[in-house]
Design a protein around this nucleic acid. Sequence first.
DNA 1: GTCTATATCGTGATAGAC
DNA 2: GTCTATCACGATATAGAC
Lengths: 202, 202
Amino acid sequence: MSRPERRRGPRSDLQDTRGALLEAARARFGEHGYDGTKLRDVAADAGVDAALVSYFFGGKDGLFAAAMALAVNPAELVEELLRDGTDGLGERLLRALLAMWDDPGSGSPFVALVRSAATNERAADLLRGFLERELLGRIAMAIDAPSPELRAALAGSQMVGIIMARYVVRVEPIATCDPETLVAAVGPTLQRYLTGDVALGA
Amino acid sequence: MSRPERRRGPRSDLQDTRGALLEAARARFGEHGYDGTKLRDVAADAGVDAALVSYFFGGKDGLFAAAMALAVNPAELVEELLRDGTDGLGERLLRALLAMWDDPGSGSPFVALVRSAATNERAADLLRGFLERELLGRIAMAIDAPSPELRAALAGSQMVGIIMARYVVRVEPIATCDPETLVAAVGPTLQRYLTGDVALGA
DNA sequence: GTCTATATCGTGATAGAC
DNA sequence: GTCTATCACGATATAGAC
């Protein structure tokens, strides 16, 4: 049971240790959040020693930052979606994001951020800043209606709610249903928040 | 600085240690989640020693369970709301829940559960079970439309999204706006999920 | 009942051999 | 570059004095 026997993942002979660590880190952070992720486990998944994390990334913080940076930049994705105007934007937005999140490779950094933000104040700052600056801010600028910030934030809350239900808490039937089912059901919600008539009390 | 000088909260002379611990625990768990909460801090807030936690509750698990059990039972709250029928249920549901969550006394157990569920698998099980059994299940039984489970789950995802935005990540302007603003804006969303015409693809 | 002191463990980081 | 061994620290839980 205590045989050395290193290297167990699919990675055959390439000794791209750094890349292997990043890959394992994204998976672990996505599954357990920042605080819940153990460096030793990440290293074990990558088939290398835990000391290499410090060697390559300086520490846990650096590894987390590097793993998050691997995300497909959603800012340009949003820009692209916005170029087609705001008609049907809700559906298109949700469809694109679901496609991204359903793929463990590109989606786990986001799930990791949401998970980590719940218990880690710095991660919450990161997520809040990212949402406001990269996503909601851009969307708010593109919509031509009163209270664009509130509208974008409401849409964001529904998107985060979907992430929580589908990827974090895994509430059925949302967790396992077809993406298009969600697009059809909650796309209109997003569209109403963005351009529809929402009562803006206060 | 190292003077004993115990007892600092508002609780003047009653030595209800157990109650003080529960009160402090709800606040801490609500703020930092299960994993992020340190028993020493809870004890310090309560003005007693950390060892008392084990004495009264057997350990961290027991303290968490006891603190969660203090929640105003939302099952009967939902039952009461359901008695008035499903017309305007979305608004009434959201108004009642916001009133509850905005009060640190009654709302923090929920926020604590949501926070903890993000990194702690057992807390996620707890939250999922609670949602499905106590909340969404009851709501699903009360609505007379196709796919009641999906409808209830969608409503739940929007409610959790509001919790995340308002209490956990604190995204503006949702975090600080008037409750009635939210009721007016997202109440119709809930109503549509529950009884409106949502496209139920797949 | 309440506190002090301590046992025990898990984790992140580091020094140094190979 | 990579691993072994270890340190330093913080956390829960427990034994026992008062």
